[in-house]
Design a protein around this nucleic acid. Sequence first.
RNA 1: GUGAGUGUAGCUCAGUUUGGCAGAGCUCUGGAUUGUGGCUCCAGCGGUCGAGGGUUCGAAUCCCUUCACUCACCCCA
Length: 418
Amino acid sequence: MFKAPKGVRDILPPQSKTWRSVENTIQQVLEDFGFDEIRLPVFESSELFTRSIGTETDIVAKEMYSFTDRGDRNYSLRPEGTASAVRAYLEHQLYTPSPYRKLYYSGPMFRSERPQAGRYRQFFQIGAEAFGVDSPYLDAEILVMLKLICQRLNLTEWELQLNSVGCPVCRSNYRQKLQDYLQAQVSFLCEDCQRRSQTNPMRVFDCKSAHCQERLAAAPRVADNLGDECREHFEQVKNLLAAQGIEYKLNPNLVRGLDYYTRTAFELVSTKLGAQNAFAGGGRYDGLVEEMGGPSIPAIGFAIGMDRLVSLLEERLTLPENRPLVYLILLGEQAQCEGYNLLLKLRTAGIKCEMDYQSGGMKSQMKKADKMQAEYCLILGETELKEQNIILRQMQSGQQQTLKIDDLLRVSPFGKYW
RNA sequence: GUGAGUGUAGCUCAGUUUGGCAGAGCUCUGGAUUGUGGCUCCAGCGGUCGAGGGUUCGAAUCCCUUCACUCACCCCA
């Protein structure tokens, strides 16, 4: 028996219905905020990701699904969407005549991690990228939009976490400062943190060890070590959010794992999720477009993790089931033949109906009608066929009456007789 | 890659401690009710006890190996 590969899964009905509904809601808000859909490929040159995300990041170092094709070209399944969006923005010169451009995309992403709650090897994101504006107004606008999305989805029990990671200049200054601090503490830190203090010092703030956290309490924080311009930008974002009534929690430990982020970084987290508690995340990446060989154009973007978001919503979101209006009960071979014609005519007329292809007894067919929660059933047996009659029965009340088959199609009696 | 937990009917799970006929509920099929569903009652179908090996008169149960799933670490949506 075949099984889906580790970490990938089928979205079955009725869950698929929840997904569709959530996607539609999000798309609507994105369109209202002026984002246009872009459809991006699922694989790209591996180098696109190594260059944009960063060779040292976990995503690139150990989580990419990479392969060579028959022409010995090196490709990877996309681990995230921003790199592709930037590539498309540059490839099609979407920065002319104006660099201002807002795009959104959705679809599967791939990372070869060990699966756990809220983490899959194929997972789905809806992402949005806004190019060409470095104003803090845009940062705040994006966060207002995310709040609106949560509101439209009736999502509660989440919070916005906010930080600024500065620009490359303030970050390298800060990095040095932090490393100096960690160096002095190194003997008190756990093994992981000792390693992190060398490779990716900002990551130490993620450490779950209470002991390390104690030692880090006095560590310098990136948001306190911003250059004038970055600090001013951050202050304005915070002020604008306050003015819009957007609650947020400053999280100096919020350090995003992709190299390209600058200044504003944020995550939407929920207490209802497992260890992987962020269902959306993003931030500014003012240097990436230029790094990728384009003009110097600032940008900000985010991605919503659909798997996590849907898992938060699916308990409270009850969608109507896909049940038939009419179930055809057909007794005997001739009736089944006639009934089949009737089934197709009704469907053509837009009436949702089902029949039993096995043609069991009356009782078993009635049971099926009941199980499928049909509102009506139509009963066609030999007795009815002789007179070209058919019995229409409303399931809930048990009321029924005999009609002419022809009348059924002509007057469409459903919902009219009772 | 590391650690822990769990694998028994289509589904949810007892049974494993202390080895002794493979179980329950739900679902499904049929009947009570010959061509009228839901409720009730009765009967039936359904098993490589994850797989392989070992110990034993005898293994779902004990031991070893292995696979899968789940959660957590690392890291991220």
